[in-house]
Design a protein around this nucleic acid. Sequence first.
DNA 1: AATGAATGAGGTTTCATTCAT
DNA 2: CATGAATGAAACCTCATTCAT
Lengths: 207, 207, 207, 207
Amino acid sequence: MSDSHLRTTPSPTPSPRGLALKAELVDCAVDVLVELGFAGTSVAEVARRAGVSKGVVTYHFPTKEDLLSEVVTSLYREAGEQIGQATGDSDSVIGELATYIRSNLTFVADHPRHVRAVMEVAANMRPANGPRGGEDPLSAHLRELIERGQATGEAADVDAGVLAMTMRASIDAAAARAACDPTADARGHAEHLVTIVRRALQATEPR
Amino acid sequence: MSDSHLRTTPSPTPSPRGLALKAELVDCAVDVLVELGFAGTSVAEVARRAGVSKGVVTYHFPTKEDLLSEVVTSLYREAGEQIGQATGDSDSVIGELATYIRSNLTFVADHPRHVRAVMEVAANMRPANGPRGGEDPLSAHLRELIERGQATGEAADVDAGVLAMTMRASIDAAAARAACDPTADARGHAEHLVTIVRRALQATEPR
Amino acid sequence: MSDSHLRTTPSPTPSPRGLALKAELVDCAVDVLVELGFAGTSVAEVARRAGVSKGVVTYHFPTKEDLLSEVVTSLYREAGEQIGQATGDSDSVIGELATYIRSNLTFVADHPRHVRAVMEVAANMRPANGPRGGEDPLSAHLRELIERGQATGEAADVDAGVLAMTMRASIDAAAARAACDPTADARGHAEHLVTIVRRALQATEPR
Amino acid sequence: MSDSHLRTTPSPTPSPRGLALKAELVDCAVDVLVELGFAGTSVAEVARRAGVSKGVVTYHFPTKEDLLSEVVTSLYREAGEQIGQATGDSDSVIGELATYIRSNLTFVADHPRHVRAVMEVAANMRPANGPRGGEDPLSAHLRELIERGQATGEAADVDAGVLAMTMRASIDAAAARAACDPTADARGHAEHLVTIVRRALQATEPR
DNA sequence: AATGAATGAGGTTTCATTCAT
DNA sequence: CATGAATGAAACCTCATTCAT
């Protein structure tokens, strides 16, 4: 008890004040990313928009990377909460795909700027070990879902990998659009995309 | 050579030598963009790879933006030439869409690095007049094509705008993949995407 | 404790608690100076090692310079106490010199880290009034001792100033060595240095 | 011949202009080191004294460490040239020691500021692998010289390591003094130190 | 046409210090 | 007494750009 007060960096059990400011800084970083792009995003600009000194930013986020990582992480956190509780017809694979698309694009419609900011970061903050090939994990999940449907005969035999990539790409494109264009209708996009996917996977009528 | 007085800007009737060097510089810029990303791309690095002094670069491209614009423009030029002469079944809309997909992804398969470089630039070098909303012109062209097919009854009544966006997004995603992952099969992607689009546009009950 | 109104500077009649903490902070500063060097010594690092917040340090030592000065002063205080009570053959000058060397290097052998820390500070924290020329006071004291011996004929006629500087330099070098290298033998150095000095001061032909 | 003009960093075959400026920058760095100390030495201050912009310094010395290293290296280069051609009585070990002392302190007397600057750098720019214990190589050379004399019986049996350290320390102390105090007499110091060393090594009269 | 040199703005980060609680 | 938060100056470094040769 006597020696429980260490630390010279932000406390692990942060004061509400500090917590609120951190969130505010992340918000400002999102704005800057969306409006000025990754290359145009500087710690100084974030501080300026938050109305604090540059030092405040580096106090809470010792490194620029820390700040941007938090932009990404906080979105994932929110997405996890919101999407996690979205459940649809999980009895059919096509139903699951529809739920996936809808919950994704609903989330996008609710947080267009944050989503765009994360895309900006993801596109530019490359992992240390060079550009990674391989399949995107989000697509991979979709692909497995599709393949499951194909195994049961519920879904037609189109290439699962390509369809998965296409779905993800379509969702991301709608997200990008929604972030820049307030008139864009992400939820409408979802419905139409569901239709497209459904038609693509429709078992061909055994004449 | 025609006249001997000093010029301080690149000749309006450029010498073949100068042209070749410009092309070389663009090539090197592509390499740097692919390997180091937009943020890592500096004039100095391009010059180093080209084996020339930094001054040479700024002589031919007064501004960094000029150089990067040329990276983009030259790809469009090449793409226009190669894709322009690709003709398929232009009697059916679905045939035209297939040709579009195939020629696009064939081009991507042939120039993966250049394509990746342009994506890098496009993602980061935003137009001066803020983020533009509205429909991407490439998607718009596809949408019109689809709508034409729907008008004739050849294509089913899925949302043309969403399908167009989805097609473009799928093509771009495959391009991004191909640029990073030499084992990726852009042409295979094209065929599978054609299938997906065909199924999506198939009139529902031809019975 | 005598009065209960707020104070904003450390109490003039410091509590034992405060005293102990100040000593602890000085100790930590010594550690940091030794391990990270002057340039690497920050208030934050000292606080971290002491397990207190940065504010505690600046509370007890309003200025970084105050802290480092205390590092120096406290060593001098300890040295004064320990060396002051060291007495040897004070009947002969050479005996006094030997005692000086031995007590100095004994002290060094007992406090190698603190000594190193002070050297780090002394080398970098220069007096406000520019670099001081002139004779180092410690050397001056030695010089006077030697000159006294020369006046009585006990010591040979070598240059007292140079010998004094040389002795001090040798002691400091041994101190520096001892601080970095735990295998160094400061006390052995003392004996050998005594021998060297004795030979240097030996009347030439006692015959 | 056509492709012999690479490089975007200072040319390996530098123009006389660049060479002169580099030397000037090193000179200014020496001044700053002497007057402001290691901790007070900033690239900006060096640039200010040289009357050039900060960028010029980092153009010629990409890193602060590069600049300081050059301060050290250039002194060693000059010292090597000047001391290398100093030859004295190399028939006796004591003669060699005297020559060593004299040539060292002559050099010091000729370049007091540069020497002081290098000491400043050496004291603070610690090698990456922590503080190194062990014997200083310069002392080691002296020790071997002394031991050689002892092997032949020319030199008395005082501890060679301690005497070597003491000689080096005395030389360095005189150098430090000379850099700050223009009235200091390094050459005089040399003569008196030679006397001290000679007496210390004098074979005791075999009665 | 081409080069090396120079510039200065701007970026990230560190840090001593101050202050409200 | 003690703390976490905030500040702003200054450090090093990168880089697009300009210019004399």
